Computed example of a mutant assay.
Amino acid sequence: MGFHNIQKRRSDYEEIKKRLMLGAAALICALSFSSSASAASYQSGTLGGYSVSGSVYMGSNSASATTTSGTLASLYSRIEYTYYYDNYQTDTVNNYQANGSTSVTASTSAKYVSVISRWAYGTHSVTIGTQSWNASTSTL
Results as ranks from 00 to 15, higher is better:
61 N>H: 14
14 E>T: 13
133 W>K: 01
74 S>V: 00
106 A>C: 11
9 R>C: 13
110 A>T: 05
122 G>S: 04
68 T>W: 04
47 L>W: 02
10 R>Q: 12
47 L>Q: 06
74 S>R: 01
60 S>K: 06
102 T>Y: 05
16 I>W: 09
108 T>N: 03
132 S>D: 07
52 V>C: 04
74 S>K: 03
116 I>M: 08
53 S>C: 02
43 Q>R: 11
99 N>F: 06
138 S>A: 05
63 A>M: 02
14 E>Y: 05
19 R>Y: 10
30 A>V: 05
129 G>M: 08
24 A>E: 11
121 Y>A: 04
54 G>C: 01
81 Y>L: 09
35 S>I: 14
102 T>D: 04
18 K>P: 03
130 T>V: 08
98 A>L: 05
33 F>G: 11
43 Q>C: 15
85 Y>W: 12
34 S>G: 15
9 R>W: 13
107 S>Q: 05
59 G>L: 04
40 A>W: 03
68 T>M: 12
5 N>S: 14
117 S>H: 04
67 T>Y: 02
17 K>I: 08
1 M>Q: 07
136 S>G: 07
32 S>L: 10
7 Q>D: 09
53 S>W: 01
133 W>N: 03
94 N>L: 09
69 S>E: 05
36 S>W: 09
21 M>N: 07
122 G>W: 00
70 G>R: 00
44 S>G: 01
57 Y>I: 02
5 N>T: 08
10 R>D: 14
98 A>K: 06
58 M>K: 00
25 A>I: 08
88 Y>A: 07
51 S>L: 03
119 W>F: 11
110 A>K: 07
57 Y>W: 03
122 G>T: 01
83 Y>A: 01
9 R>K: 15
78 R>P: 00
113 V>A: 14
38 S>L: 10
79 I>R: 00
84 Y>S: 13
46 T>P: 09
90 T>K: 13
11 S>H: 08
14 E>Q: 14
39 A>E: 09
128 I>E: 00
136 S>F: 08
79 I>C: 02
17 K>G: 03
131 Q>Y: 08
119 W>H: 12
107 S>K: 04
34 S>K: 12
107 S>Y: 01
124 H>S: 09
16 I>H: 08
3 F>K: 08
52 V>Y: 03
21 M>D: 04
97 Q>I: 06
93 V>I: 14
64 S>C: 03
6 I>P: 12
90 T>I: 13
76 Y>M: 02
125 S>D: 01
38 S>H: 12
50 Y>L: 06
76 Y>A: 01
16 I>C: 10
57 Y>N: 02
47 L>E: 00
37 A>L: 12
61 N>P: 09
41 S>H: 10
23 G>E: 09
91 D>R: 10
73 A>V: 01
25 A>T: 11
79 I>G: 00
73 A>L: 05
72 L>E: 08
86 D>M: 06
15 E>G: 15
37 A>E: 15
137 T>V: 05
89 Q>V: 12
55 S>M: 13
18 K>T: 11
47 L>P: 01
65 A>W: 00
3 F>T: 05
